[in-house]
Amino acid sequence: MTKNKQTVEVVTVSQERRRRWSATEKAALVRETYEAGMSVSLVARKHDVSASQLFNWRKLEREGALTAVQAGESVVPASELAAARAEIAQLQRMLGKKTLEAEILKKAVDIARSKKWIARAPLLPTDDQ
């Protein structure tokens, strides 16, 4: 029994380089993955992009990050956005409370004037002004 050993040499000619994709190109590739009969793997092979990169671009597109980059806007992390929304909600609640307090005080002043509990106080505004 003889064993034949063959040596195989693989020669690659490709240059390793980092490509830059514009936001428009990324969006076009992502749209192509959603077309009928297309898959992420097929589009990746067709355009010589890794499938994981396309999946990442699809995720960014769902989050709206590709649109923000295309529009020249900065992308805000989701944690910062959630914190800002929570602060806005808190400020709106505080504004609502202060508005309610002001309305209650205004009604109290009107009632006090009508019962003559407040007699011509110079610091309080009158309805004529």
Rank of each mutant, 00 (worst) to 15 (best):
L124V: 13
L105Q: 12
Y34F: 09
K116Y: 07
S50I: 08
L123F: 07
N4K: 00
R93G: 03
A27D: 10
M38L: 13
Q129F: 10
S79Q: 14
R120C: 11
A23D: 09
M38Y: 10
L105D: 11
T2P: 07
M94I: 04
V76F: 14
T7A: 06
T67R: 02
V75I: 15
Y34P: 00
N4S: 06
D48V: 08
Q70I: 11
L54F: 02
R45P: 06
Q70V: 09
E25T: 04
R58Y: 04
G37K: 13
A102R: 07
A83N: 14
G64F: 03
D48I: 07
V13I: 08
M1F: 06
D128N: 04
L95G: 05
V30Y: 03
A119L: 07
E63G: 03
R31M: 01
S74C: 14
Q92F: 03
Q92W: 01
S39N: 13
K107M: 04
A71N: 15
V8Y: 11
K97G: 02
K98L: 13
Q129G: 05
I111V: 10
D48N: 14
M1G: 02
R62F: 01
R58G: 00
V8R: 06
T67H: 05
L42V: 09
H47A: 13
M1D: 00
K98A: 11
S79M: 15
L124H: 08
L66K: 02
R62T: 05
A108R: 14
S114M: 11
A44L: 05
K5C: 00
I104M: 05
V49K: 03
K97T: 04
R45F: 07
L105E: 11
R113C: 09
T67S: 09
E32L: 10
L54G: 00
L66R: 00
A86K: 12
A44M: 10
N56T: 03
K26H: 03
S79T: 15
T12N: 14
A23M: 09
K26T: 05
K59P: 03
M1W: 10
T7E: 06
Q53W: 15
R93L: 13
L42D: 10
E87N: 12
T99A: 06
E73Y: 12
V11Y: 05
W21F: 12
S22K: 02
A108P: 05
R85C: 07
K59W: 04
A23R: 01
K3P: 00
L100F: 08
L105S: 12
S41W: 14
R17S: 12
E101I: 09
A108W: 11
K26P: 02
P77K: 11
D128T: 10
L95S: 10
T7M: 04
E103Y: 00
I104P: 01
M1R: 10
T2S: 04
K59T: 08
E32M: 11
A78N: 11
E101V: 09
